[in-house]
Simulated scan of single mutants.
Amino acid sequence: MMKHELWTNEEGLDLFCLAGPQGDSARQLLEPGYRLVWACEADSHLEAMKKYYAFRRWGKYQADFPEQDSRTYKEMGWE
């Protein structure tokens, strides 16, 4: 399992990325005013995106590359 974070600003722009060192490069792109609003743990990119869509109430997440996105982080050597 890997932790993911959702950062957002007052304009409603989101950044959903990995927590910790794996997400450092993404968070460095954030401008002032973004704040951490939610976090979750997931085994894969697909699971993380499903949880993100559920949190935002955007309906069911449809992956462009479901086979690739469903590979667990452990299978990819990320844990």
Rank of each mutant, 00 (worst) to 15 (best):
Tyr61Asp: 00
Asp69Lys: 02
Tyr53Lys: 02
Asp14Tyr: 14
Ala26Ile: 00
Asp14Gln: 08
Glu41Ala: 07
Tyr73Phe: 15
Asp64Lys: 13
His45Val: 15
Ala42Val: 04
Glu67Asn: 09
Gly59His: 02
Pro21Met: 02
Lys50Met: 10
Pro66Leu: 09
Phe16Gly: 03
Lys60His: 10
Asp64Phe: 10
Pro21Ile: 02
Glu75Lys: 08
Met76Lys: 06
Arg56His: 06
Thr8Trp: 07
Cys40Asp: 02
Thr72Trp: 09
Ser25Asp: 10
Glu75Val: 12
Gly59Tyr: 02
Trp38Glu: 08
Gly33His: 03
His45Glu: 12
Glu75Asp: 15
Gln22Arg: 10
Thr72Leu: 11
Gly20Lys: 04
Tyr52Met: 04
Ala63Met: 12
Trp78Thr: 05
Ala48Ser: 14
Leu36Phe: 09
Lys74Gly: 08
Gly23Gln: 09
Lys51Pro: 05
Arg56Gly: 01
Phe65Ser: 13
Tyr61Gly: 00
Leu18Cys: 06
Gly20His: 05
Lys74His: 11
Val37Ala: 04
Glu10Phe: 04
Phe55Thr: 00
Met49Ile: 03
Tyr61Leu: 00
Gly12Arg: 02
Glu5Leu: 07
Leu46Ile: 02
Arg57Ala: 13
Phe55Met: 03
Leu6Ala: 11
Phe16Trp: 12
Met2Val: 07
Arg57Leu: 09
Arg35Thr: 14
Leu13His: 13
Glu79Ala: 09
Cys40Thr: 07
Leu13Ile: 14
Trp78Glu: 11
Trp58Tyr: 11
Lys74Trp: 08
Pro21Phe: 00
Glu79Val: 14
Leu13Cys: 12
Arg57Phe: 06
Pro32Arg: 06
Pro21Gly: 02
Gly33Asn: 04
Thr8Tyr: 05
Lys50Arg: 15
Thr8His: 07
Gln62His: 08
Trp58Cys: 08
Ala63Arg: 06
Tyr73Gln: 04
Phe65His: 15
Ala63Ile: 11
Ser25Gln: 06
Pro32Thr: 06
Ala42Ile: 02
Gly23Leu: 06
Ala19Cys: 10
Glu47Gly: 01
Gln22Thr: 05
